[in-house]
Amino acid sequence: MIPGTFDYHAPKTLKKAVSLLNEHEDAKILAGGHSLIPLMKLRFAAPAVVIDIGRVSGISRIRISDGHIQIGALTTHHTIGSNARLRRVCPVLPETANEIGDLQVRNRGTLGGSVVHADPAADWPAAMMALRASFEVAGPSGTREVSASDFFVDMMTTTIGDGEILSQIRIPEPPAGSGSAYAKMHQSASGFAITGVAAQLTLDESGNVSAAGVGVTGVAPIAYTASAVEDALVGKAPDEGAIAAAAALAADGVQDANEDHHASGEYRMHLATVLASRALASAAERAKS
C-alpha cells in the first residue's frame, strides 16, 4: 500500500478520540480498516490525519442485559459470528456476520465501521433495520442516540457529524417466541450483498405473528425497512402462503434501485422478494422451535 502522507494517532479512550477528531481538519477514523484502507491505497481517500481507534477500550464488547443486546462499535464480525449466546438469542446477528467477506475480513472488520461507512451493499444495515437497532454516537458535547431508520441518510452517508464517533449499537432483546435469519446473494467478486434480507418474527401463544421486522440491503441507495412485508404478516400464521404473499412486497416503493454490471435494479428488486421469503421461512422455523 502506497498511500499519501498522513499523521497517525492511536488514542486509548473514546473521549480522547473524539477530541482528536475535533482538533484536526480532514481527519478520518480507522477501525478495522476494511473500507478506509482500500480507498487510501488507491488514493481515492487521502486524509491528512488518521485516528486509529483500535486501542480504545470499552467499545468492543457484546453485552446482553436489561432487555438489550449492546454491541460495541469496534466488535469484529468474527466476534459476533462466533458468539454462542447470540446464536441462541438473536441468530440473525451471527448469521449476518458469517456471510461477510472471508475469514481475514471477518477477523479485522467491525460492525461499527460497516454501518458508519454505509455502503449500499453492506450486510449489517439489513439486520440493523430488521432488529430496530439504535446507535449511540459520541461527540464533543456528549452522546446521543439515533434509531437505525434515522441513521442512514443516503449512499455512503449517515447522520454522524464530522466530529462524532459511533460507540455502541443497541438492539432490543428479542422476546420469547422470536426467530430471526439472514438470506443473501453474494456479489461474486467482492462478497458484498447484491441483495440481502434480514428478518425477525415473534410469535404469540397461538402461533401467529405478533411482531415482524424485515430489513433489506443492496437494493436501494440505503438499507430500508420493508414495512409492507411486516404489516402483511402481523396477526397471521407464518405459513408458506402468508410468507409468500408478504415477501412479494419486499421491494414495494423502491424508486431508484441500485444497478451495475453485476445486477440490474429490476433483478435486485426481484431478489428482495425471493430472499425475504427465504429469510422469513427460516425465522418462522426458528421462532417455532
Binding site: 482500500p38 488507491l42 461474486s188 467478486a189 467482492s190 458484498f192 454490471h261 453485476h262
Partner: peptide
C-alpha cells in the same frame, strides 16, 4: 475500465 479491482472483477 469498470473492472479494475478485485471488488469488481471476480477471481
Amino acid at each position: 475500465v469498470l473492472t479494475g479491482t478485485f471488488m469488481d472483477y471476480t477471481m
